[in-house]
Structure formats: C-alpha cells, structure tokens
C-alpha cells in the first residue's frame, strides 16, 4: 500500500523534507514531511490551548491538502503528535466524508446531489461529468472516490453545498461553480485535462 504513484502531481519536492521515519523509506507519507507542513501543524496546535486533541481535524486537513489523501503512516504520525492511540484518528478519518484513504484524481469534481440542485438538474450534471471524464456513474460509493482511468479526474456526488439559490452547483477542486448547465461540462473538463 501507500503507493504514491498516482499523486505525483502533489508529491512534495524532497529538498525541504525532514525524514522522520528513516526505516519506512519513500513510500510512506510521514517519511516525506516538508518543513512548511510541519510548521503549519505546529501553528494549528497552538489554536487549541485547552486540549491538543482538538487539533485532530485541522491536522488531517493539512495532511490531506498536502498529500491528496491520508495513508496509514499519516494516521499514526498525527496520533503520535497529539498523544493519542491511532484509532482515535482513524475513527475520524473514516467518519467524515471529506477525508480519503486513497489517492484521488488531480481534479476533484463534487456535484451537489440534494433537493434544490437535483430539481435543477444535478443528476444530469453528474452524468455529464462522468461521461466527459470516463468515470462509471454507478461506481459503488464504498470503493472510494470514483476516479478516471488516467488519474486526472474524480467525480462524486456530495450532499447539500449550501448554495441552493444558484442550483445546480459543483465544487471543482476549491472553486464553486454555480448554475452549471450540462452543456458547459465539456469545457470545464477540457480546461483541466
């Protein structure tokens, strides 16, 4: 496991890396922690002067933003950092839909599925994104994020993105696209291919 091949676009340069686990080599995320990430982690912990454990979510966000997903070494590293058992971190990773344990595509497209967006065509929009990226729309949710064979795109349905007045909406990586028509999908995908 812990194959980083699919995340080559996200893999940090090793110049500033601090090797924390000599033995585990290049395949685990915690062995390639750049100084800038470590600094952000230390800063985040200071936001919780009463209980370090509260920093679990922010640390997981920082980790996933950097590596693209959270591997076993990440769970263990964060747990050790916050003086917790690894299960205390793993149970959070598996609870929240936002966190992933596998590499996603380079561009993640999240289509809002809930009522107001559905009424405005969210199902058609989701289908159009799947078709344009070559993803099986019936991909079982339990098997991780549906990703295109070339590793460039992940497309998933998410629940209400709180932008119901401009339905249908989707998040393309960090950007919210509003009132999206299926006809715009091809251009959105090609721009990021």
């Amino acid at each position: 496991m812990n194959d980083l091949k699919n995340t080559e676009n996200r893999q940090p340069t090793t110049d500033n890396c601090v090797l924390t686990q000599e033995a585990s080599g290049i395949c685990s995320q915690s062995s390639v922690l750049p100084a800038v990430l470590l600094q952000k982690i230390e800063e985040a912990i200071t936001h919780y002067p009463v209980s370090k454990r509260s920093a679990a979510l922010p640390l997981l966000h920082l980790w996933q933003n950097h590596f693209g997903f959270i591997d076993e070494s990440g769970v263990e590293w964060i747990a050790a950092k916050l003086e917790l058992n690894p299960i205390a971190i793993l149970e959070i990773v598996t609870f929240y839909p936002w966190f992933r344990q596998n590499a996603p595509g380079k561009t993640i497209i999240r289509v809002c599925r809930t009522l107001s967006c559905a009424m405005a065509g969210a199902y058609e929009l989701h289908d159009a994104f799947c078709k344009a990226t070559g993803i099986d729309p019936e991909h079982p949710h339990e098997q991780g994020m549906p990703t295109s064979p070339d590793g460039k795109f992940s497309v998933e349905f998410v629940e209400c993105l709180a932008s119901c007045g401009s339905a249908p909406v989707c998040l393309v990586n960090k950007d919210l696209l509003e009132c999206v028509a299926p006809a715009e999908v091809a251009a959105i995908v090609e721009e990021r291919r």
């Binding site: 936001h47 454990r53 509260s54 922010p58 997981l60 205390a88 149970e91 609870f95 929240y96």
Partner: peptide, 27 residues
C-alpha cells in the same frame, strides 16, 4: 478567536455534535 473547519458531515450542525467535533472526537 480561531476558525475550525468541519469535514463534510451534516450532523456537526447539531450543537453537541459540533462540540464533539471541536474536541477532536467522532462527532
């Protein structure tokens, strides 16, 4: 004042769930 980000769970809008989430536990 600090900003704390959730992670995609509707239940965290329930106030005691929000507190558990903020404490770093399963919400």
């Amino acid at each position: 004042v600090y900003v704390h980000e959730g992670a995609g769970a509707y239940i965290c809008g329930e106030e005691t769930s929000l507190l558990e989430s903020l404490e770093g536990k399963r919400p």
